[in-house]
């Protein structure tokens, strides 16, 4: 379990999604995941099991099978089911999935690698650091766009975020250059990781600066990063940036809980806690 785990959960429930269909049950999800006749039902079941954390051995077993699926292919040759299976395995937090996830880090599908990096971050096992670091080989120079694809050669954002959460302190020098990557989201991921690894405010302040930017997607992304790293001094900037209140509340929740867990509970609430809650109250 890592600090970021409840955070990801919250990110999903931020959407007003119709997925909370009470007619869809755990039994049905497991059944749909185990069958192979209807790929789209299987795909949805994998997502659902992760979303509602159906944490049982049958689910883990079925997801591990889905992680090796060859039947569900997207037009560009990707493996949609594998992507969902990897994400769900991360959310279930069962370390039995660890070796299979490490293997899947070599999958030819970029989006599977991305989901796997996120899952490894959630599992929180530092043995994932060396295989993740391997994907950074070639550094900034190699971190280019794949011709004709909407993505880079590796899922750098997810990799850097995972390395930050997994406390890969000995690889700071490898991560730092990505602060200058040409993709802003990659810069943010690097800033986020650098803050987690060094505790230096200068890196978190880069994310605070990003909240003043013009692009809504980037503001959202920086906000979620600040929530994930629990940067207390970023709370006001989050409350004031131009974005949906739902997301601001989630980011502030991340900061508040980070702060609360670093305090001894049961005591009087700190001034910082009250300050953050006042901001949250104002966003309801």
């Amino acid at each position: 379990m890592t600090d970021s785990q409840p955070f990801y959960e919250a990110r999903l429930s931020a959407e007003d999604s119709p997925a909370d269909d009470p007619a869809y049950t755990v039994e049905q999800a497991l059944e749909n995941l185990q069958q192979t006749a209807d790929p789209s039902a299987r795909y949805y079941a994998a997502w659902w099991i992760g979303r509602f954390r159906v944490n049982n051995p049958i689910a883990v077993e079925a997801l591990l099978q889905a992680l090796e699926d060859d039947s569900d292919r997207s037009p560009d040759g990707g493996y949609p089911l594998r992507r969902n299976a990897a994400k769900a395995l991360g959310k279930l937090g069962d370390l039995r999935a660890f070796p299979a996830l490490i293997n899947a880090l070599d999958c030819e599908d970029y989006y599977v690698r991305e989901s796997v990096a996120q899952a490894l971050e959630m599992l929180g096992d530092s043995r994932a650091i060396p295989p993740l670091v391997k994907l950074l080989e070639g550094g900034l120079e190699k971190a280019q766009q794949v011709p004709g694809k909407p993505h880079l050669v590796q899922p750098y954002e997810a990799i850097l975020e995972a390395l930050g959460t997994l406390q890969a302190r000995e690889f700071v020098l490898l991560i730092e250059p990505f602060l200058d990557h040409f993709v802003e989201k990659v810069q943010y991921a690097a800033a986020r990781a650098m803050y987690q690894l060094t505790g230096q405010a200068i890196y978190a302040e880069r994310l605070v600066m990003a909240l003043q930017g013009n692009d809504l997607q980037l503001r959202r992304s920086a906000m979620m990063d600040l929530g994930a790293i629990g940067y207390v001094n970023g709370a006001e900037a989050i409350a004031n940036t131009l974005a949906e209140n739902s997301l601001k509340l989630i980011a502030l929740k991340g900061i508040l809980e980070h702060h609360l867990t670093s305090q001894s509970l049961d005591l009087e609430l700190s001034q910082e806690s009250v300050r953050i809650m006042k901001l949250m109250d104002g966003l309801l």
């Binding site: 508040l256 809980e257 009087e268 609430l269 806690s273 809650m277 949250m280």
Partner: peptide, 13 residues
């Protein structure tokens, strides 16, 4: 949820 609990604690205070 820690945040909700903290909010209740603050309300009680």
């Amino acid at each position: 949820e820690l945040s909700v609990k903290a909010r209740v604690q603050w309300a009680l205070q």
